[in-house]
């Protein structure tokens, strides 16, 4: 049995325009390394998550696997087929949904759009109609079946984009932030659909990128955490969280203070440190991952030495986000 996705030392660099070349993100002489020696194996039937901050290279990886972009070097196999050498063969097995509202041609209705794409994928008439009905029902879009896309709201368009991907019933599905910007209810419908779809047929595989840690934790069999083009770890969410078991995670809230945050990372016993300003609440939320629990006394001392009043302090079970912070050295939100 083939692996659904397998990459060998996949690299992708982009040439930078002069103005952008500021020496960050591992670029040198006008080059930006979007993907660096990425090695990933995804098994058939797996729901695989790709986590990483903005610019980590997630979309780049998906584009290469979806035959939209060539790697600079390395090999990518999808269902055992080389994406560079045989893109036509790969295309029969895959589909892709990237978040965002572009879901079709404004002049067509929802049903016409789904029908059109089913035809591009050669789905038999009866099957296509049945599947369209099913999708419309599960994603609660029945009442919009005859609405022109141009008249749909952004969220509904995004939902349609999602349906467009699934109407072709690919063997391997690439979802690039499918729930980005969706309201809670719609995002839930989408997640439920993904899970049901996976369950229906054990050969189906999903590679999904997301910014929502909870989503990855809830959905994915395994996740890879990727930063600055490098795959840092790859394991099940459970195992990743277990890897932090020896460490203690604390949340501390202090009154909003913008300056001098970095020094808290240097407190003895602190393994990783992240913070988020919640200016609307007038608070700053600090997160400490400690080598061991006892180190919390160093933290509280240091905070009070700094004159910060501690509003609240709580110990957390490590979440996927903590794993992320521990590895990447910063949270998804407070990027530097």
């Amino acid at each position: 049995m083939n692996l659904a996705v397998e990459t060998f030392d996949l690299n992708r660099t982009f040439k930078l325009k002069k103005a952008k070349n500021k020496g960050e993100n591992g670029n040198n002489n006008g080059k930006l390394i979007a993907l660096e020696n990425a090695n990933i194996k995804i098994h058939q039937g797996e729901l695989f998550g790709l986590l990483g901050p903005n610019g980590a290279g997630k979309t780049t990886l998906i584009k290469i696997l979806a035959t939209l972009l060539l790697p600079t070097s390395g090999t990518g196999l999808v269902d055992g087929i080389d994406v560079v050498k045989y893109p036509e063969k790969v295309r029969k097995k895959i589909n892709m949904v990237s978040g965002g509202e572009h879901c079709g041609y404004g002049i067509l209705t929802v049903r016409e759009t789904l029908w059109m794409f089913s035809q591009f994928y050669g789905i038999a008439t009866k099957v296509a109609h049945r599947r369209i009905d099913e999708l419309l029902k599960i994603l609660k879009m029945e009442e919009f079946a005859k609405t022109k896309i141009g008249k749909l709201s952004t969220g509904l368009r995004q939902k349609l984009n999602f349906m467009r991907g699934f109407v072709c019933d690919p063997k391997i599905m690439f979802l690039d932030e499918p729930t980005l910007g969706l309201d809670v209810q719609i995002a839930r419908d989408v997640r439920i659909y993904i899970r049901t779809w996976m369950k229906e047929n054990p050969e189906r595989t999903v590679l999904l990128t997301t910014h929502y840690m909870a989503e990855a934790d809830e959905l994915c069999d395994r996740v890879a955490i990727i930063d600055k083009g490098r795959v840092l770890v790859c394991d099940s969410p459970q195992n990743l969280k277990k890897s932090l078991a020896g460490e203690a995670v604390f949340y501390i809230e202090i009154p909003l203070s913008v300056n001098g945050m970095e020094k808290f990372g240097q407190i003895p016993g602190v393994k990783q440190f992240a913070y988020e300003h919640k200016s609307h609440l007038g608070r700053t939320e600090l997160k400490f991952i400690l080598e061991e629990e006892s180190a919390i006394s160093n933290v509280t001392e240091s905070l009070s030495g700094n004159g910060s009043k501690i509003i609240s302090l709580s110990k957390m079970e490590p979440s996927l986000e903590d794993v992320f912070v521990a590895l990447v050295g910063r949270g998804l939100k407070n990027e530097n």
Binding site: T67, L68, M96, H102, G104, G106, F117, F120, Y121
Partner: peptide, 13 residues
């Protein structure tokens, strides 16, 4: 305009 080319391009047509 429609920003659909990526989906057309990666389809098997």
């Amino acid at each position: 305009h429609y920003q659909m080319i990526r989906y057309i391009y990666i389809s098997p047509i």
